[in-house]
């Protein structure tokens, strides 16, 4: 089985910041807006290097989304930055009407998604954002897994015309995908080959899926791990190709099972290749305060949970 090396823990939000810095140099139409969270979103470099193209909007997220929609008129490519909760739920109607329905080329960049925000607790730990965003017609939804991939995705979405939701997180996590990779929107990345179970994971759960695959191999189970960074449009073919070989699947995400990656995968399978599936996701619940590791364990979102789900789904074949 192919193995991956963690080149050192890094936060995905810093990958976003690095990608934005790169875009500042290469694409003069890129502008950035932030709602009083420049440090948290790692937008400091872009602000310092391009003060004319950086817009501090204050704690006014609804206005930020509307401003971004308007800025596209005349050719700018706005990147908005705030926490995932305030990037989606707080401004859903603004995104729906002024961005998605109006087909505006806005990139909604959301940090601190999911439980791994940690100690701030449930008011800030959104576990519904993927669902909210994927339901909007025309919205591309991306949830990256590590620093390198987040940087590559940030650069890639500037070249894609249309609204995008880019989701990433707060904590330092394993950085294991290639530096300076090419990011293809909508294209799953096969990380390991296997015959017994398919594990499709997104965001912080991708590394956990690799850890699970290693442990499963020691038990004689070969797992095929797919990194699904783009939840919409979903790479149906990659999923179907894999389950046609393995015959069962585990989906893993830092999100409610309602509205998340797992549901999107279940639809593809129901339509084309009914397959036993287990969901590693939160169980229709809010989060709470704690360290990221404690929370991921308590809510069943780590390698152990993926191992158990894999063993269970194999028995259902």
């Amino acid at each position: 089985m192919k193995t991956y090396t963690n080149t050192g823990n890094k936060d995905t939000r810093s990958g976003f910041g690095a990608g934005l810095t790169e875009l500042g140099k290469t694409n003069e139409n890129v502008v950035a807006l932030c709602a009083d969270l420049i440090g948290s979103l790692k937008m400091d470099d872009f602000k310092a290097n391009h003060p004319d193209r950086f817009f501090q909007v204050g704690i006014a997220e609804a206005n930020m989304i509307g401003l971004a929609a308007g800025m596209t008129i005349g050719g700018k490519i706005p990147f908005t930055g705030t926490f995932a909760n305030f990037s989606t739920g707080r401004v859903y109607d603004q995104i729906r009407q002024s961005v998605a329905y109006s087909d505006k080329n806005v990139k909604i960049c959301a940090s601190h998604a999911g439980l791994t925000l940690g100690e701030d607790g449930a008011t800030h730990q959104i576990l519904e954002d993927i669902g909210l965003m994927k339901m909007l017609p025309g919205m591309t939804v991306i949830n990256t897994c590590d620093y390198n991939q987040t940087k590559a995705a940030t650069i890639a979405i500037a070249e894609h015309h249309g609204p995008v939701y880019l989701r990433f997180g707060r904590p330092k996590v394993a950085n294991f995908t290639p530096e300076n990779q090419t990011f293809e929107i909508g294209k799953a990345v096969q990380l390991t080959e296997g015959n017994d179970v398919t594990i499709v994971a997104t965001g912080h759960l991708v590394w956990e899926a690799l850890e699970a695959a290693k442990a499963l191999l020691e038990k004689g189970i070969s797992a095929e791990v797919l990194n699904i960074h783009t939840i919409k449009p979903l790479d149906d073919k990659a999923i179907l190709d894999s389950v046609s070989k393995t015959g069962c699947i585990v989906t893993a995400e830092e999100h409610n099972y309602l509205g998340g990656l797992g549901e999107s995968v279940a639809r593809v399978l129901a339509l084309h290749h009914p397959t036993p599936q287990e969901f590693v996701a939160t169980d229709d619940t809010f989060g709470e305060s704690g360290t990221p590791e404690q929370l991921m364990e308590k809510y069943g979102l780590n390698a152990d949970a993926i191992i158990k789900a894999s063993e269970k789904v194999i028995k259902r074949k």
Partner: peptide, 9 residues
Amino acid sequence: SVALGAAET
């Protein structure tokens, strides 16, 4: 908000 964004551009 939208009009102000267009004005900024």
